[in-house]
C-alpha cells in the first residue's frame, strides 16, 4: 500500500516535470520585420510595398528587422519574383530560375543581391535594397517578395527519433511596382502543353497553364479531363477552384489522383477555365501522346520497383530456418516425452 502511494506521487511529480520541459523547449520566434513605406507608396494602410515608380529611375526600398532575442542574429535578405505554385497558389519566397517567356521586367534580377545582415540583441536595423527600373515603361505590375530568413542556430540535439524536425522562421514582404496609378491590364490564360508526368512518385497528366499578362489572376477555376482520341469516355476528371496566378507566370496543373498511369496511346486534354468570379472564360483542347518510354517509366514506379528483393530473400530464409528449428524442437520434445 505504502509502495503504491510512493509510486503514485512520484508519477504525478514526474509528469509535471515532463510538462514543464515541453513548455521550456517550445519553439518560438523572436524577430519581426516591417516594410518601411516611402512617399511614393500608393496605399499607406498596406503592410507591403505598392509603389508608383518612374522608368529609368532607381527605387530604394527599406526593410526594418527587429531582433527581440537576447542574442545577436544573422539574417539573409533576398528578393524573388512572384510565381505560381503547382497547387495554384501565389508564391513570393521561391527563387524563379526560369521566368515565364511573357515577363518583360524581372524585378528579382533588377534588385540588389543577397545581403546578410547582423542585428545585435534587442536592436532593430534598417536594410536598404535598390531596384533599377528599366528605361522602357513596363505594363501592369511587377510583383515580387523580399524574403528575410534568420540563420538557423546550430543546436544539434542528440536524439533517437527516426525523423526529427527543426523549425525555422521567415518573413516575406510583397513588393508591387507600377508605372501608372490606374491598372487596366486584364489576365489572359494560355494552355502551353499537356503531357504525362511523375511528381513525388505519383503519376499525373499535367497541363502547363500560363498567365501571360502583368496582372494577378484571381479565383481561377479549372474544369478538365482527358479522353482517348476518338472516344468520349472522360478519364482523370479534375476540378479545382480558388487558385491564384502571379503576373507573367506558369504552373503545372495536375489531373488525376496519381494512382493510375495512362496506357500507351493518343489522348486529348479538355480544359475549361474561368477567373475573377467568372468575368473571364477560356476553353482549350490539346492532343498528346503517351509513348512507350514515358508509360514504362511511370509504370515501373507504379508497380513498386523499389521492393528490396535481397531483403525479401533474407527474411524468407530466416523464416524457413525458424520454422525448421521449431519443428525440430517439437519433434525432440515429443520423442523425449515418449
Amino acid at each position: 500500500m505504502k509502495k503504491w502511494r510512493w509510486a503514485a506521487s512520484l508519477l504525478v511529480g514526474l509528469s509535471c516535470l515532463g510538462g514543464w520541459w515541453q513548455t521550456a523547449q517550445a519553439e518560438s520566434n523572436h524577430y519581426s520585420v516591417r516594410a518601411v513605406l516611402p512617399s511614393n507608396q500608393v496605399n499607406k494602410k498596406l503592410t507591403y510595398f505598392d509603389l508608383l515608380v518612374k522608368p529609368g529611375k532607381t527605387q530604394t526600398v527599406t526593410v526594418r528587422i527587429n531582433n527581440k532575442d537576447t542574442k545577436s542574429h544573422q539574417y539573409d535578405v533576398t528578393t524573388n519574383l512572384a510565381s505560381t505554385s503547382d497547387a495554384g497558389q501565389l508564391v513570393y519566397n521561391q527563387t524563379v530560375k526560369n521566368p515565364d517567356a511573357s515577363l518583360q521586367f524581372n524585378l528579382a534580377t533588377a534588385t540588389s543581391k543577397v545581403k546578410t545582415v547582423t542585428v545585435p540583441a534587442k536592436k532593430a536595423k534598417l536594410v536598404n535594397l535598390k531596384v533599377k527600373l528599366p528605361e522602357k515603361q513596363f505594363p501592369g505590375i511587377a510583383l515580387g517578395g523580399i524574403n528575410i530568413v534568420q540563420h538557423a542556430t546550430a543546436d544539434k540535439k542528440s536524439n533517437k527519433q527516426s525523423v526529427s524536425i527543426t523549425n525555422q522562421f521567415a518573413y516575406t514582404l510583397g513588393i508591387q511596382l507600377r508605372e501608372t496609378k490606374k491598372l487596366t491590364v486584364k489576365p489572359e490564360l494560355n494552355l502551353l502543353s499537356a503531357e504525362p508526368l511523375q511528381v513525388n512518385y505519383q503519376n499525373y497528366v499535367v497541363a502547363k497553364l500560363q498567365n501571360s499578362r502583368a496582372v494577378i489572376m484571381h479565383d481561377l477555376k479549372v474544369n478538365s479531363y482527358v479522353t482517348k482520341q476518338g472516344s468520349d469516355k472522360k478519364l482523370l476528371k479534375t476540378v479545382k477552384e480558388n487558385m491564384t496566378m502571379a503576373p507573367n507566370s506558369h504552373f503545372n496543373f495536375a489531373l488525376g489522383d496519381g494512382s493510375k498511369a495512362l496506357a500507351v496511346g493518343n489522348y486529348t486534354l479538355h480544359l475549361k477555365a474561368s477567373a475573377e468570379n467568372g468575368k473571364y472564360h477560356w476553353q482549350f483542347t490539346k492532343k498528346f501522346t503517351v509513348t512507350q518510354t514515358k508509360a514504362a517509366k511511370a509504370a515501373i514506379n507504379e508497380t513498386g520497383a523499389n521492393t528490396n528483393w535481397t531483403l525479401v530473400a533474407i527474411l524468407g530464409g530466416v523464416i524457413v530456418i525458424l520454422i525448421a528449428v521449431i519443428v525440430w524442437i517439437l519433434m525432440r520434445n515429443r520423442r523425449k516425452s515418449k
Binding site: A35, L46, T47, Y48, D50, A82, L90, Y92, N93, L143, G145, N147, V149, N167, Q168, F169, A170, Y171, T172, L173, G174, I175, Q176, I216
Partner: peptide
C-alpha cells in the same frame, strides 16, 4: 521553414 507573408 514557416514563412509569414504580407503581400497582394
Amino acid at each position: 521553414t514557416w514563412t509569414l507573408t504580407n503581400g497582394p
